[in-house]
């Protein structure tokens, strides 16, 4: 009996100590984790827009986030866009509700600050105060709009689609005419040496500069990547004087409307990235058209 008591007490004490150590570390790291993740995304966004350490972003570059929600009210479904708006001198958020055909339904003020809006949980509690009981809502996606001074610079779209093995998550940068400015592979689990090559510059940079019209018909071709084009795509390996201005221009115009060259031994991965990018852009262009019309007709003072 005494034995059992000793064992139980010993185990309880060790469990308590272990639990408190883990809890302590968790509370310390949770904040840093969020901060670093945010920083990582921010860096990727800047890199996609062409800003690096050597060429830092101008101080009047601003990012504005639009959050899309699917709202259900019984049988009826609506799309809600949480857009940042000007409220006097400060910024606030409004929920613009649009029906499935793209017609404006209502406009609701969301009591949330721009800093708090980054957190999904905070948005949810704020939205619950404006969308009352029978209405339910689910988070769909985020679009980030980059603005330089008084002109729109780019749309940044995080997205995810099935790859060869599991999911591939990407970040796309589009200019206001939906031309691709850049593609970054954020996460994937493709085979190293084969499908994992999608994160190499000579693959992902092929998407750069493709116009919206081209993207709609974008295909993957199984041809070897021309050597000169490959060297052109690997911008990180460029040395001074490797390409003259004219050469860059000629290669760019030659391949601008070209399809995507498949990776050797990873045609399926190449194809899933191409189709995934194509779908993201097509859906986004369709939605943005509808949203912009509503914003213009309702005179919503959006910040982007």
């Amino acid at each position: 009996m005494k034995q059992i008591l000793r064992i139980t007490i010993g185990l309880t004490i060790s469990c308590l100590i272990a639990g408190s150590i883990m809890g302590l570390v968790f509370t310390i790291t949770a904040k840093a984790k969020k901060h670093n993740e945010h920083l990582n995304v921010q860096e990727t966004m800047l890199a996609l827009l062409g800003y690096t350490k050597a060429n830092p972003a101008p101080s009047d570059l601003r990012f504005h986030s639009v959050y899309r929600y699917i709202i259900e009210d019984g049988e009826a479904k609506y799309i809600g866009y949480m857009v940042p708006v000007k409220k006097g001198a400060t910024e606030g958020y409004e929920l613009v509700v649009i029906n499935l055909a793209g017609k404006f339904v209502e406009k609701l003020e969301v009591p949330i600050s721009p800093e708090a809006a980054i957190e999904e949980g905070e948005r949810e509690t704020a939205l619950k105060t404006v969308l009352r009981h029978p209405k339910t809502f689910t988070y769909a996606d985020t679009t980030i709009i980059a603005r330089l001074g008084d002109k729109q610079l780019a749309y940044l779209l995080p997205g995810e689609f099935p790859g060869f093995k599991t999911f591939i998550s990407v970040m796309l940068a589009l200019d206001p005419n939906f031309k691709i400015l850049g593609l970054e592979i954020m996460e994937h689990e493709e085979d190293p040496g084969l499908g994992a090559e999608i994160e190499q510059e000579y693959f992902k940079n092929q998407f750069k500069g493709k116009s919206f019209e081209k993207v709609k018909r974008l295909k993957v071709i199984k041809e070897p990547l021309p050597d000169k084009y490959k060297r052109y795509l690997e911008t990180k390996k460029w040395k001074k004087g490797m390409f003259s201005e004219q050469e860059i221009e000629s290669i760019r115009s030659k391949y601008q409307d070209h399809d995507i060259y498949a990776l050797t031994g990873a045609t399926i991965s190449s194809r899933s990235v191409t189709n995934g990018v194509k779908n993201i852009i097509k859906k986004f262009a369709y939605r943005m058209g509808k949203l912009n019309k509503v914003i213009a007709s309702q005179h919503i003072a959006v910040t982007f």
Partner: peptide
């Protein structure tokens, strides 16, 4: 937890 927080990539 530490690795996930400080070297996420």
């Amino acid at each position: 937890l530490v690795l996930a927080a400080y070297v996420p990539v």
